[in-house]
């Protein structure tokens, strides 16, 4: 690990000032950042410990929604009684990720900002446009099993690896960000992560000095909430494909279908057109296939990850069948 200066922020403004500096980075749980610092993928010169800022509360909101503080641990969120009862898709997504030891340290803000697990990104001897702009992308013609089939660019085909944010995307949660200038802004989780485009080094919309203070969950909606994660072993592995779903029926037709997908793109993938195919229709294999056609209309594999396209189709169908009570 490269030497760095350790600073403990004692207020939000202080944290903003410190992290706005060049080569400065916030540390929350440290489970992603320290891992990458040991690999010299991340080389901050100033490490700003934000753990004493508060922002750890999980609270009810007046409108019936909830507030999840940026420093709340993944465990605290997943075991919160109201998260379990009203937002089970979120509790399930968190519990499907990492291990208990990691979830006990991992925070809301850090989880949203976790970096890709692309093997070229984490190996500093390899070319990677995300780590070193202009050096090329090792994965496009290389080992790309974990990589994107939707929304990739010729510069980068990495995936966002997390689970929590996929559920938050299905729930249409909002990220609250405090800027270095003292202002705050709210960004939907659906718009928080970026597609790689020509600037793959930018994972999300945060600017230097920005701090996530928390995430707002909208009031709970009726319907079944499911999180299905497909991975190479049954525990403790990143998603090859995951589906977060909130599906409500009205009689024998689908009334609501809020869906988000993990493991397929540089961000949790939310495509409103997929829900539109389903709403007002009777559930069944043909309908699920049509929804998958829409989801995957621009999908493209890179050899090793070609399997993700049929896998996403089948996972979507399985989740919709379970949510609507249809036998496939």
């Amino acid at each position: 690990m490269r030497p760095f200066d350790y600073q403990r922020a004692d207020s939000r403004d202080h944290a903003g000032q410190l992290t706005a500096g060049e080569h400065a980075q916030a540390i929350a749980g440290g489970t992603n950042l320290l891992d990458l610092m040991k690999l010299q993928v991340e080389t901050p010169q100033t490490l700003v410990d934000i753990n004493r800022l508060g922002h750890r509360e999980i609270e009810d909101r007046d409108d019936g929604g909830m507030w999840i503080g940026a420093l709340a641990t993944n465990t605290e969120t997943a075991v919160h009684p109201r998260v379990r009862s009203d937002y089970p898709v979120l509790a399930r997504a968190i519990l499907a990720g990492a291990t208990q030891q990691l979830r006990n340290r991992a925070t809301t803000g850090g989880n949203l900002c976790q970096r890709t697990r692309c093997y070229y990104f984490t190996n500093i001897d390899q070319p990677c446009n995300k780590r070193e702009p202009g050096s090329g992308c090792g994965a496009i013609e290389g080992i790309a099993k974990l990589h994107a089939v939707l929304g990739a660019s010729s510069q980068c085909i990495a995936t966002y690896p997390g689970d929590m944010a996929v559920a938050m995307s299905a729930l249409d949660a909002q990220v609250e960000i405090a800027g270095a200038d003292g202002g705050t802004r709210t960004v939907p989780v659906r718009d928080f992560h970026r597609l790689p485009g020509d600037t793959p080094w930018k994972d999300n919309v945060l600017e230097p000095g920005d701090l996530i203070t928390g995430v707002t969950l909208p009031p709970p909606v009726k319907g079944r909430q499911l999180y299905r994660k497909v991975r190479e072993r049954s525990s403790y592995a990143f998603a090859l494909c995951s589906v977060a779903a909130i599906v409500a029926m009205d009689g024998d037709t689908i009334a609501r279908a809020d869906l988000a997908f993990g493991g397929l793109a540089h961000k949790p993938w939310h495509d409103p057109e997929v829900g539109q195919v389903l709403i007002g229709q009777k559930p069944g294999a043909d309908l699920f296939n049509r929804a998958a056609d829409v989801l995957l209309r621009d999908a493209r594999g890179y050899g090793e990850n070609d399997f993700k396209i049929p896998l996403a189709r089948r996972t979507l169908a399985a989740v919709l069948a379970e949510a609507t009570g249809v036998e496939l």
Partner: peptide, 26 residues
Amino acid sequence: DHGQCGACTVMVNGVRINSCLTLAVM
């Protein structure tokens, strides 16, 4: 040393964590 094996598990304030992925100064 990368949070993958659990050999370094300890309890901090009663909660189990991987001691390899946290700085002592924190």
